[in-house]
């Protein structure tokens, strides 16, 4: 099953734009639900984004340094 991983929203008034710091997993690797996928930075802090599912990371849709917003597709996992 294909699983599209999107950047979850924080909240109505919250700052929801971030930039991609770096990926913590390589394309083709298997990740478990909850494993850290990538690091993002906002104005306030650095954040790790956990994987919402288990599977093989088949495609990264954003690269290091990209600006991302809530709802953007980050990567694709296949179970």
């Amino acid at each position: 099953m294909k699983h599209e991983v999107k950047l979850p929203e924080l909240g109505e008034d919250a700052n929801e734009a971030a930039s991609v710091g770096f990926w913590m997993v390589e394309t083709g690797s298997y990740v478990n639900e909850g494993d850290e996928l990538l690091e993002l930075t906002t104005d306030k802090a650095a954040f790790s984004v956990p994987s919402p599912a288990s599977g093989v990371l088949t495609e990264k849709c954003v690269e290091d340094g990209d600006e991302v917003s809530v709802g953007d597709l980050l990567c694709v996992l296949e179970e």
């Binding site: 950047l7 979850p8 929203e9 924080l10 930039s19 991609v20 710091g21 770096f22 690091e39 993002l40 930075t41 802090a45 650095a46 954040f47 790790s48 984004v49 956990p50 919402p52 290091d64 340094g65």
Partner: peptide, 22 residues
């Protein structure tokens, strides 16, 4: 090439996600 983080290593949190957050 990873971008340089403007934060020291201890200024790092988990991004919100999951059913309880929702």
């Amino acid at each position: 090439m990873a971008t340089q983080s403007p934060f020291p290593e201890w200024i790092r949190q988990g991004w919100a996600s999951g059913e309880d957050f929702t």
